[in-house]
Amino acid sequence: MKNNKRDGTFYINPYLGGILLGLVLFATYYITGRGLGASGAVKSTVVTAVHAVAPSHAEESGYYSKFLSDDASPMNNWLVFEVLGVIIGGFISGTIYGRLKLKVEHSPKITDKRRLIAAASGGLLFGIGSQLARGCTSGAALSGMAVLSASGIITMMAIFGSAYLFSWIFKKLWI
């Protein structure tokens, strides 16, 4: 049994995982008054990087300047630390269940290269979309659903609806 759990194929029961995730989300709301997030950390990294490389460009841009206030905005730092935690937490879980392995995961029908190109373009689109919608699956959809906000539920339906449509278009990438 124990061996079986460590060979990398064991995942916890999805409902247990969901309840764990829900409790984490609830704790986040209870402690900080805000939800979880992921894309926000990337955004603040990009803003900080652009500000460091080209300060005047960042201050003039209509978008970067929104996130550049005099006192380093705490929410953005918060998300960066949270995402660092996500990586640590994922690493812990990966260690326990024996999933640490450097590899490209893809359908046997496609090459590594094709998978990586698809991943890069997917990341690109997700980056753009998450800024438009003011949050990604975790920040806008999941956290929004927990407080029953309109933006959360509408964004969730838009993401999953369009993902269903596009996944059939890109079916060859997956199965």
């Binding site: 992921a38 689109l125 003011r134």
Partner: peptide, 26 residues
């Protein structure tokens, strides 16, 4: 934004949070 993210989801197979988990295990 949701529609664009959905397309990214179908192409990339991750969303930002899950991709960081993927990064953590290599």
């Amino acid at each position: 934004g949701g529609l664009v993210m959905g397309a990214g989801f179908a192409l990339g197979g991750f969303c930002p949070g899950t991709s960081f988990c993927g990064v953590a295990i290599g």
